[in-house]
Every structure is written in C-alpha cells, then in structure tokens.
C-alpha cells in the first residue's frame, strides 16, 4: 500500500532526527498509559495498555510504549483498538482525529479531535464522538451512505453542500467497513 510505504519513510526519517531523544529518554517503564476522552464522557483514564491500534490516513498504526512522538492523521471515521493485559477486546469507532507530536516536556495540550503521544508514553485521544463498535448499525449506515451520495451528486447543490455530503459519505462508508468486522 502506498500509504504504508509513506509511513515507513516518515518513521525512518524520524529515527534519524533529534526527536529520537524523546523515545530513548522516556521514563515510562515500558508501559503505555492511555487517556481517552470525549466532550461528554471520559472513556478511559490513565489506562494501562499494551498496544493501541488506530487507523490513520497514512495507514494503520500500532502504538506501543516508548513510541516516538508522531504526527499522523486519522481518516474520517476509524476504529481504535486497545489491547490490554486482561485480554478483553476493546474497540471503539471514532470520527476524525489527529495524532500530534508533543514536543514540550510539560503537561500535554488537550483539544478536540486530537490524539497526542507524549514522550513519557502517555497517549491522549480526544474526539467529538466515539462509540463501541458493537453499537454500530450497518443498515442505518447503508441508508445514510445512499442519502449522502445522492446529495453529493445532486445538481444545483453548492460546492460547500457537496463537500459536507462527502464528509458524511466517507464516515458512513467507514462505519460499514467497521461493522463488518
């Protein structure tokens, strides 16, 4: 996959930059601590995870402890998979979010729609909406996708309306892909 090779290139470039220091200096004790919050709910707080998988626009990404602080952007709609020591699968579906590098050693900035990998192996994920994958309704998403694609191709719709419909369409398609798993 093209995206995959781009990601590898980004990662290997990061290995040779000064940022490498953050990973090697990290005092995490090999543990990844995850904070996962929405405006209306804290899903996980200081949760000890082994691995967190996200779907970024550059391909799927697995985040372990001592990960190099990275920039990646999640595609519009994607699954976050959290692997913990108790082996209980936790899968969430989120709309848009970004991964940002955290360059300062102080507390992490928190804003909507971002995930931040900190040098101390804490990972903050913030999104406007996230739901359990089991709660997704493929039928509803299929209907939504059809309606959005109609709006996208409607004659007389403004470019802005079409772009809004395309955002919806992408999300519904991502829901369909996730609900099949």
């Amino acid at each position: 996959m093209l995206f995959r090779s781009a990601l590898v290139a980004v990662r290997s470039a990061a290995n040779f930059s000064a940022r490498r220091l953050y990973a090697s200096e990290a005092g995490s004790g090999g543990k990844l601590r995850l904070n996962f919050a929405l405006p209306h709910q804290t899903i996980l707080k200081d949760f000890e995870a082994i691995q967190v998988n996200i779907q970024s626009s550059e391909g799927d990404m697995g985040i372990l402890a001592d990960h190099v602080p990275t920039i990646a952007q999640l595609a519009n709609g994607g699954v976050i998979e959290i692997l913990a020591a108790d082996n209980k699968p936790r899968k969430f579906f989120v709309e848009y979010l970004f991964i940002l590098p955290h360059t300062a050693q102080s507390s992490s900035p928190v804003s909507g729609g971002f995930a931040i990998i900190n040098p101390d192996s804490s990972l903050n994920i913030n999104a406007v909406e996230a739901v359990a994958v089991e709660d997704l309704d493929a039928e509803a998403a299929r209907k939504g996708a059809d309606e959005a694609s109609r709006k996208m191709n409607a004659s007389g719709a403004s470019e802005k309306d079409k772009a809004e419909a395309r955002v919806e369409f992408e999300l519904f398609e991502a829901v369909l892909a996730a609900a099949k798993v």
Binding site: G77, E95, G113, E129, D135, D137, E164, V167
Partner: peptide, 26 residues
C-alpha cells in the same frame, strides 16, 4: 477537499460526529 470550499475543521468534525450518531443501533 473540505478546506478548499471554506469549511473549518470543527464544522467537518461535527458533521462527521452527527453522521456517526445516526448510524447507531436504536
């Protein structure tokens, strides 16, 4: 593509979140 027609990140993010809410089980 949404940036090119003048939509902001917050706007797009909210559209996306609303679409997600509509694709949930009852």
């Amino acid at each position: 593509f949404w940036r090119e027609v003048g939509l902001t990140y917050l706007h797009v993010s909210n559209i996306s979140a609303a679409a997600l809410r509509r694709s949930l089980k009852p």
